[in-house]
């Protein structure tokens, strides 16, 4: 079963459009959703959450249509944006009182445990909290009704590595339940390398690939050489290539290339750069 299924999603604005976006997040997995700024990550996530109305396509969460079953679906999801969008005069204790009335499954004990773990002052107003604190509060709020799916839109952007590591650990703990899933949008690819099982890459409103992270990292390789050396590699093995100051680099399918070629293991960032800046 898939936690999220998106088929042929279209949404257009002046100067930008999502064009037939399709991908799915299998239950029990973490999907990293990557792309440069303005590629369409947040627009896709907003369509998934019905914050933006789709123009075409189908979006299913837990196999159900989001618009038809909006409230029941939203009981089972937790959402984190790149900032905490609650009135700044509220504090963590007041937010607990509010959430208790919103979710039947709200777990105050778990919530205050997370606040203690993250050292978030319970009676300090949101406006008095640092950005890192606000993000940690946002994550505690998203997880304390025990959702089955977390939808995270750049939750770690602008945070220091220590805080990011703490947050990623919490997500890994969440994923210990195999019915749980995460859609994690980020342009910090190192975070996704730590926790993602799949990577979906969006560029200019189009999905370029949606693939298992292991396939990307272990089945792809980077060959570095001059133009003549690259021309020896069979064409069907080359996914993308690009010319640099010191020669040519090619992203290739490892199994299709002779072992005499020395290949480097690519990072997700390398693969992104090949897709965006390279040519076929």
């Amino acid at each position: 079963m898939n936690a999220i299924e998106v088929y042929d999603l279209q949404k257009s604005f002046e100067g930008f459009a999502l064009n037939d976006v399709s991908f799915s997040v299998p239950q029990g997995t973490v999907m990293g959703f990557v792309g440069e700024n303005g590629a369409g990550k947040s627009t896709t996530i907003k369509c998934i959450l019905n914050l933006l109305k789709k123009e075409h396509g189908e979006i299913l969460l837990f196999g159900k249509d989001l618009v038809e079953h909006e409230l029941s679906i939203k009981n089972d999801i937790g959402v984190v944006f790149d900032d905490l969008h609650v009135p700044e005069t509220l504090n963590a204790t007041q937010l607990d009182k509010f959430m208790k009335k919103v979710f039947k499954t709200w777990d105050s004990g778990y919530y205050f445990e997370r606040l203690a773990q993250f050292k978030i002052p319970v009676s300090k107003k949101v406006k008095e909290l640092s950005r890192g604190m606000r993000m940690k509060l946002s994550i505690a709020l998203a997880m304390s009704h025990h959702p089955k799916l977390l939808i995270l839109d750049e939750p770690t952007s602008g945070l220091d590595p220590i805080i990011r590591d703490e947050i990623l650990d919490l997500f890994l703990t969440f994923m210990q339940d195999e019915t749980h899933s995460i859609l994690f949008s980020s342009h910090i690819t190192s975070d996704l390398e730590k926790i993602a099982d799949y990577i979906t890459f969006i560029h200019n409103g189009e999905i370029l690939f949606s693939e298992s992270k292991d396939v990307l990292i272990y089945e792809y390789g980077i060959f570095k050489g001059d133009h003549e050396e690259v021309s020896v590699i069979p064409e069907h093995a080359i996914i993308r290539k690009r010319n640099g100051t010191f020669g040519t680099e090619a992203l290739v399918l490892k199994n299709e290339v002779n072992e005499v070629f020395s290949l480097e293991k690519p990072s997700i960032e390398d693969i992104m750069l090949f897709y965006v800046k390279g040519s076929v």
């Binding site: 019905n50 914050l51 409230l71 029941s72 905490l84 969008h85 009135p87 700044e88 949101v126 939808i151």
Partner: peptide, 18 residues
């Protein structure tokens, strides 16, 4: 006004509230 300043509606519409 407080809601607007904090983009509350963006958050509220992710919760199970009509």
């Amino acid at each position: 006004t407080y809601d607007e300043q904090s983009s509350w509606d963006k958050y509220a519409n992710t919760l199970p509230i009509s």
